[in-house]
Design a protein around this nucleic acid. Structure first.
Length: 515
RNA sequence: GCCGCGUUGGUCAAGGGGUUAAGACGCCUCCCUUUCACGGAGGAAUCACGGGUUCGAAUCCCGUACGUGGUACCA
């Protein structure tokens, strides 16, 4: 181990999503680690779209992915959207490239044509299925019993090819070889080649499978480090072999297989979101076919800084006690060898804590517009941004999600329509009523409203009337807010202004007298 | 079934032969505040199991169990 960086070449990493739907937590974290590693090492971050399965194409998914990256603050250096010297960056547009590599493998004896139809494959799986082997593979044990260029006469193969018979190209896995490589997270990993199946490399429609495409494109795009989810580890021996056959092991990128992010019960799926009440995707995603909406962290009220932060430390830490990191700090501190090998269960409670911390940490300016939109969606129009900022500043430390600003501060924009009766009733009597009536006239005559004046006036009057302040303060709060919540009452009164305060006292006196 | 990967409190985790086994989230108690939060002080709670190696194991080795991923002309 040790030096993972090849001293010769510039670091180049890629995030290679297939545009089939929303981008979930694990996906974003994979991008993040790619991005951090690239930036940390002064390298390039490439986004390549792996759309080789035409049956799974989903309208809008690619744009959506780029929107998510943008929201998270990760701009690709090269991508189908941003261009670059290795274009095109969509595998579907690179289709013609792959065939020659597949054919080269055949010529070198590392791959073969297979003419088996889907029905024949299904039959094979049925025929070879036993209790001890419930899912037989197309591998060294069965390939000589199938219809392929290994079993057919050369002239038969020629004929089938000449007739354009549908066929695929499969890798011919060698027998009894140990295939091993060094993973940046798992270290030495090895496989017995006899146990790996003859993966399809080129499909009948001429498109490569992931296995071929990833190797060819990583080579062509000069990728130095390849990071992906651990679900790929099982097929790594195929990729290693292809590198060996095609481009040389010495040119193979350094691999890192990232631990999986788990849901409350097993692998995190978008179903978990609906089931347990937390978002799974970065941003809202509506499936164009089913119209099904899957909630995003953004819409749930997360700050992108918090989202990035919580993802970064889910499976990685720098060995210190620091937990809050900006993107810049992450770039500074990140290293792949401090990434955990084990999967991590996602904890929404902790995720919310990160958001709360970022709300407190950030200036209101950085999210004012988003919160403004939330208010306006709720039917509250914001005309005075100075006042709005003041209000947000007042309540920010009791907000966990951006949407909480509405519940915490809506009372600044509308007098309560409902009062906490149970808290007022036991304290409300004629003395209190007289007090608040007198308070109205005192407040009306107040020359200046700021600088603690409402509080002083309130307290003076209480002393004069010989009522304990504690007896009055809660009532006052409920007059202004409606319930037992919010910042200090006098701060609220000062912020609202005298007219509004007086209005609310008047209104409340009437209501309370009915209790 | 087979193969791969993994296993420190409920969760995220530090620690990689000798530690009172950090810290954070969550939970509980108290303080602050006549509200709710924020903040502060405490508390409960952990090295999956069994064998080795060693004076000494959470740490190294081997098994077992459990979890998880793969086992597609999907990525």
């Amino acid at each position: 181990m040790g030096a993972y960086l090849c001293s010769m070449s510039k670091v180049r990493v890629r995030f290679a999503p297939s545009p089939t739907g929303g981008l979930h937590l694990g996906g974003v974290r994979t991008v993040l680690y790619n991005y951090l590693f690239a930036k940390k090492n002064g390298g390039d971050f490439i986004v390549r779209i792996e759309d080789t399965d035409q049956t799974r194409f989903v309208e809008g998914a690619e744009d959506y992915i780029f929107n998510c990256l943008k929201w998270c603050g990760m701009q690709p250096d090269e991508s189908p959207l941003h261009g670059g010297p290795f274009a095109p960056y969509r595998q579907s547009e690179r289709k013609a490239l792959y065939k020659k590599y597949a054919e080269q493998l055949i010529n070198d004896g590392f791959a073969y044509y297979a003419f088996d139809t889907p029905e024949e494959l299904e039959k094979m799986r049925q025929d070879f299925k036993t209790a001890a082997n419930p899912s037989p593979q197309y591998d060294g044990n069965v390939r000589m019993k199938m219809r392929n260029s290994l079993t057919l006469l050369p002239e038969e193969v020629e004929k089938l090819l000449a007739e354009n018979t549908r066929h695929v190209i499969r890798i011919k896995m060698p027998a009894n070889e140990t295939i091993s490589f060094t993973d940046m997270i798992h270290h030495e990993v090895s496989f017995d080649s006899s146990l790996v199946d003859d993966k399809v490399l080129l499909k009948a429609d001429g498109m490569p499978t992931y296995h071929l495409a990833v190797v060819v494109d990583d080579y062509l795009m000069k990728i130095t480090h390849a990071f992906r989810g651990e679900e790929w580890l099982s097929s790594a021996p195929v990729h290693v072999l292809l590198w060996k056959y095609l481009f040389g092991l010495e040119n193979m990128p350094q691999w890192a297989h990232l631990p999986l992010i788990m849901g409350p019960s097993g692998k995190l799926s978008k179903r978990d979101g609906a089931k347990y009440g937390f978002p799974v995707f970065a941003m809202n995603w509506t499936d164009p076919k089913t119209n099904e909406l899957t909630e995003g962290f953004k819409e749930r009220g997360f700050l992108p800084e918090a989202f990035v932060n919580l993802l970064a430390v889910l499976g990685w830490n720098d060995g210190t006690e620091q937990e809050l990191y900006s993107m810049e700090e992450l770039v500074e501190c990140f290293s792949m060898d401090r990434v955990h090998a084990a999967g991590a269960k996602f904890d929404f409670e902790k995720a919310k804590w990160f958001n709360q911390e970022w709300i407190k940490k950030s200036g209101v300016e950085s999210y004012r517009l988003i919160v403004k939109e939330i208010f306006e969606t709720k039917g509250v129009s914001i005309n005075d941004d100075v006042y709005f900022t003041k209000v947000l500043d007042l309540v920010k430390e009791r907000c966990t999600l951006l949407t909480d600003f509405y519940t915490q501060a809506a009372f600044f924009y509308a007098a309560p329509s409902l009062y906490d009766e149970a808290s007022v009733k036991p304290k409300w009597d004629n003395d209190k009523k007289d007090f608040f009536k007198a308070l109205i006239s005192r407040y009306s005559n107040l020359a200046e409203w700021g600088g603690g004046a409402p509080e002083n006036e309130f307290k003076n009057l209480a002393t004069e009337k010989n009522i304990k302040i504690g007896e009055l303060q809660m009532i006052f709060r409920i007059m202004l807010v409606g319930s037992k919540m919010g910042p200090g009452v006098f701060v609220i009164a000062e912020t609202m202004g005298s007219a509004e305060t007086i209005n609310r006292i008047e209104k409340a006196i009437n209501v309370f007298s009915q209790f």
